[in-house]
Simulated assay, not measured.
Amino acid sequence: MITTKSLTLNTPLTIGSVKLRNRLIMAPMQQYKGSPEGYATEHHVQHYARRANAVGLIIVESTAVSDNGRLVPNDIGIYSDQHTDALKRVTDAVHTKHTPIFVQLSHGGRKSDPEITKRLIAPSAISYDDTYGKPSELSVSEIEALIEDYRLAARRSIEAGFDGIEVHAAHGFLIHQFLSPISNLRSDAYGGSPLARAKFLQDTLAAIRAETGRNYPVIVRISSTDYVDGGLNPQELALMLKPLVADNLIDAIDVSSGGLLPIQPTDTHPGYQLPDAAVIKQHLDVPVIAVGKIYTRSFADRIIGDGLADAIAIGRPLLEDPDFAQKMIGRKDFS
């Protein structure tokens, strides 16, 4: 019998129908190398394949579901059928390393890049800051059109060869804007109570599931706190996510923080987001991914062995050193 204490970073983990060879995940990180039309490039093929040698899973950078929701001018997208071929080259390259790869589906909402956004949108007409400007409040029909964008993006994700989907509901982007009471002041079905504020995420996940089926992994990245009184906190988020987990809409939770407001955490010590991940894990019966300067094998093993999280995601060290995962894992070859 496997006990929690016997689990380590090297222990395989199953997310949905996909088995990870270990619990080290490459976190999604913007590359700023997409074409003006949002296509993945040769940079992405080489970048992700080079870092796929030892990690259990790669999650690709933010990938826009709408040409009006890109985060930066050189973001990559999946908002047309023409984007799939370029992304298929990325997934094929990673699969040669026997590593699964998920796409991160996103829409910037009020934080979409003003240079390329025709019309800023949000659940409520509240600005992020003066740089972005004031967004327009979404109508219900516009919300339904956005949910359709996610559904079509899910279809293209499968066609592009991705093994799963991460829905970006963190860092102040559109879904996070719906979840937080600070940015969502609606009084209709998509606002008000915590469960109503989660309806956009719920409807989006249901639309994605309509394309993928139950066995295809779908995970969600959340910001556990808005770093301000009256904002989201991990306990409230767990309450909002629990019905979605019960309905088999979510296979894992990726716990980050912040981004809704131009506020930075005052302390970013190693594992600074871990307590929130542990709270989420206490309430939800799906794997929880912890992230936030967890860069040593001993620290990662302690987190997993103590049952605080089920997997560890790392970002910047892999940008600086493509072989960082092999060194952290302690093995040279997993293929």
Results as ranks from 00 to 15, higher is better:
196 A>Y: 07
18 V>W: 03
143 I>W: 09
87 L>D: 00
305 G>N: 09
40 A>I: 10
256 S>L: 05
148 E>C: 13
326 Q>Y: 02
89 R>Q: 12
37 E>H: 09
43 H>M: 12
243 P>L: 04
77 G>R: 13
180 S>W: 15
62 S>N: 03
221 R>T: 07
46 Q>I: 12
116 I>Y: 10
144 E>R: 09
13 L>E: 01
34 G>E: 06
60 V>T: 12
227 Y>G: 10
266 T>C: 02
95 H>P: 15
58 I>G: 01
17 S>K: 14
167 V>W: 06
92 D>N: 11
128 Y>F: 15
68 N>I: 06
145 A>M: 14
39 Y>K: 08
17 S>Y: 15
61 E>T: 06
197 R>P: 14
114 P>K: 00
121 I>F: 05
35 S>F: 02
224 S>E: 14
186 R>M: 01
36 P>F: 07
227 Y>S: 09
108 G>T: 00
158 I>K: 14
184 N>K: 05
95 H>I: 02
258 G>V: 10
94 V>M: 03
94 V>G: 07
220 V>C: 12
291 V>N: 05
226 D>Q: 10
131 T>C: 04
96 T>V: 14
66 S>I: 01
293 K>V: 10
231 G>L: 08
129 D>V: 04
224 S>Y: 07
178 F>E: 03
210 A>H: 08
324 F>G: 12
95 H>R: 08
270 P>H: 12
163 D>T: 12
322 P>R: 10
279 V>K: 10
72 V>D: 15
114 P>V: 04
111 K>P: 10
147 I>C: 04
168 H>V: 10
261 L>E: 05
176 H>G: 07
221 R>P: 07
162 F>R: 08
133 G>I: 07
156 R>D: 08
335 S>V: 05
167 V>I: 11
211 E>R: 13
199 K>G: 07
120 L>N: 05
188 D>R: 13
257 S>M: 12
110 R>D: 00
177 Q>P: 12
15 I>H: 01
334 F>P: 00
205 L>A: 01
298 S>P: 05
273 Q>W: 14
218 V>E: 06
42 E>P: 01
103 V>A: 07
34 G>D: 00
187 S>E: 14
126 I>V: 08
43 H>S: 00
216 Y>I: 08
178 F>H: 01
263 I>N: 04
49 A>C: 03
294 I>L: 09
216 Y>F: 15
106 S>F: 04
119 R>Q: 15
267 D>N: 15
65 V>G: 08
184 N>M: 12
280 I>C: 13
274 L>K: 11
205 L>W: 07
64 A>S: 06
170 A>I: 08
35 S>A: 12
275 P>N: 09
330 G>V: 05
74 N>M: 10
101 I>C: 04
303 I>Y: 03
82 Q>L: 14
163 D>Y: 01
325 A>Y: 08
24 L>K: 05
105 L>Y: 06
8 T>Q: 04
157 S>F: 00
67 D>L: 13
129 D>H: 02
333 D>I: 00
207 A>F: 05
256 S>M: 11
232 L>A: 13
134 K>W: 07
173 F>G: 02
326 Q>C: 13
300 A>Q: 02
52 A>H: 00
256 S>D: 06
151 R>I: 02
244 L>D: 10
92 D>P: 01
116 I>K: 06
98 H>Y: 03
252 A>K: 11
313 A>I: 02
33 K>Y: 02
123 P>Q: 05
184 N>E: 07
185 L>S: 06
